Amino acid sequence: MELRHLRYFVAVAEELSFTAAAGRLGISQPPLSQQIKDLEDELGTALFERTSRRVELTAAGAGLLEQARAILIQAEQAALQTRAIGSGQVGLINIGTTGSVLLGSLAELIAAFGERHPGVVVRIHEMGPLEQQTALLNHRIDISFIRRPRHEPNLITELAWHENVGVVLPEAHPLARYRQLPLSALKDQNLVFLRLSDSRFARYLQDCCIEAGFMPRISHEVVESYSLTSLVAAGLGVALVPESVKRLSRPGVLYRPLKSPTPIADVEMMYRPDRSEVVERLVRLARNVLNPVA
């Protein structure tokens, strides 16, 4: 039984005339009659009582009519849903990121995307950088926003937005009186740092310190950038952080930008080459909203 058979059957059942049904369907009457006969042969029962003067539904035909209408409605809904998913109007997108990246422009991007595509469900998954790349390759997430990602030839990487690195220090710290600091000013300071074993971004910051003439004196390590401010507030040291972390308001803690050459905390977006139309729409929006100059 094909959908074509059901459409033809419903037309005849509603018109109770093969001639009128053929006109409604835009076909000639003989093929229509043959299709109805084929359907009856397949089902093993008559669907219509035909006389020279009228066409009426049999009991079996009346029983099929309600189900045929429901099937055709479901088929049309499925077609509409499929086209909407294929065009990126509806669907699901899984985003991998870290909490500190959400402090930046990602939250605004997700909000803007939701306004433009209300039919798309967005799920955020907080996970470490290496876990994000593995999840992308395993199709557990669709796109990742990450700092200093490891090169992966099977993934596409491009700039999402630019961000500088600054320093967070206690309000009473001697360096707090300066509006801007050179990185070398942190030479003799205890630093609370991202965990070097987990973060390529942390290792990059360590290299920046070495280039500035000193090995950072790391007192404590954490997983997330926003956790650093808590340690700074407790007086355990100063911290190098992405500038978006300054959005975290915490009493007794100040943010100061670094003088040039300034370490960068750029956020990259990573996705698979076989991305869906939904992901492609998010990528295009990110290019236009977050990094319009690129």
Rank of each mutant, 00 (worst) to 15 (best):
residue 7 R to V: 07
residue 10 V to N: 03
residue 10 V to S: 06
residue 11 A to P: 01
residue 13 A to E: 02
residue 13 A to H: 04
residue 15 E to P: 05
residue 17 S to Y: 04
residue 20 A to Q: 14
residue 21 A to I: 06
residue 21 A to N: 05
residue 21 A to C: 10
residue 24 R to N: 13
residue 25 L to N: 07
residue 26 G to W: 10
residue 26 G to A: 08
residue 27 I to L: 14
residue 27 I to E: 14
residue 31 P to Q: 06
residue 33 S to N: 11
residue 33 S to W: 15
residue 34 Q to P: 07
residue 36 I to N: 02
residue 37 K to P: 06
residue 40 E to Y: 02
residue 43 L to M: 10
residue 45 T to A: 14
residue 48 F to T: 07
residue 49 E to K: 15
residue 51 T to D: 11
residue 52 S to C: 09
residue 52 S to M: 13
residue 54 R to W: 12
residue 55 V to G: 06
residue 56 E to D: 13
residue 56 E to V: 15
residue 58 T to E: 10
residue 59 A to G: 12
residue 63 G to Y: 11
residue 64 L to D: 05
residue 67 Q to E: 11
residue 70 A to W: 13
residue 70 A to H: 15
residue 73 I to P: 03
residue 75 A to Y: 08
residue 78 A to G: 15
residue 78 A to K: 13
residue 80 L to V: 14
residue 84 A to G: 07
residue 85 I to H: 09
residue 90 V to Q: 08
residue 90 V to P: 04
residue 91 G to T: 04
residue 91 G to N: 04
residue 95 I to P: 00
residue 95 I to K: 00
residue 96 G to C: 08
residue 97 T to L: 03
residue 102 L to K: 12
residue 106 L to S: 00
residue 107 A to L: 12
residue 107 A to N: 11
residue 112 A to C: 03
residue 112 A to P: 01
residue 112 A to Q: 05
residue 113 F to T: 00
residue 115 E to D: 10
residue 116 R to V: 02
residue 116 R to Q: 09
residue 119 G to V: 02
residue 120 V to A: 01
residue 122 V to S: 09
residue 123 R to K: 10
residue 127 M to W: 04
residue 128 G to F: 07
residue 129 P to H: 04
residue 129 P to D: 08
residue 131 E to G: 13
residue 138 N to K: 12
residue 141 I to L: 11
residue 142 D to H: 13
residue 153 P to V: 05
residue 154 N to L: 13
residue 154 N to E: 15
residue 158 E to T: 03
residue 161 W to A: 00
residue 162 H to P: 04
residue 163 E to R: 03
residue 164 N to C: 13
residue 164 N to T: 12
residue 176 A to P: 03
residue 176 A to D: 02
residue 178 Y to K: 10
residue 186 L to G: 00
residue 186 L to E: 00
residue 187 K to R: 14
residue 191 L to S: 00
residue 192 V to A: 05
residue 192 V to E: 04
residue 193 F to K: 02
residue 196 L to R: 14
residue 198 D to C: 09
residue 199 S to T: 05
residue 203 R to Y: 09
residue 205 L to C: 08
residue 211 E to D: 15
residue 214 F to M: 07
residue 221 E to C: 06
residue 222 V to R: 10
residue 224 E to V: 08
residue 226 Y to I: 09
residue 228 L to H: 02
residue 236 L to Q: 14
residue 237 G to V: 00
residue 241 V to P: 00
residue 241 V to E: 02
residue 241 V to C: 01
residue 243 E to Y: 04
residue 244 S to P: 00
residue 244 S to Y: 00
residue 245 V to P: 03
residue 245 V to W: 02
residue 247 R to W: 10
residue 250 R to E: 11
residue 251 P to F: 03
residue 255 Y to F: 14
residue 256 R to T: 03
residue 257 P to C: 06
residue 259 K to M: 11
residue 260 S to I: 09
residue 263 P to C: 04
residue 263 P to Y: 01
residue 263 P to T: 01
residue 264 I to W: 10
residue 265 A to V: 01
residue 265 A to Y: 00
residue 269 M to C: 02
residue 275 R to Y: 07
residue 275 R to P: 02
residue 277 E to G: 04
residue 280 E to G: 15
residue 281 R to T: 01
residue 287 R to N: 01
residue 287 R to H: 03
residue 287 R to Q: 06
residue 288 N to E: 15
residue 290 L to Y: 02
residue 292 P to L: 03
residue 294 A to W: 12
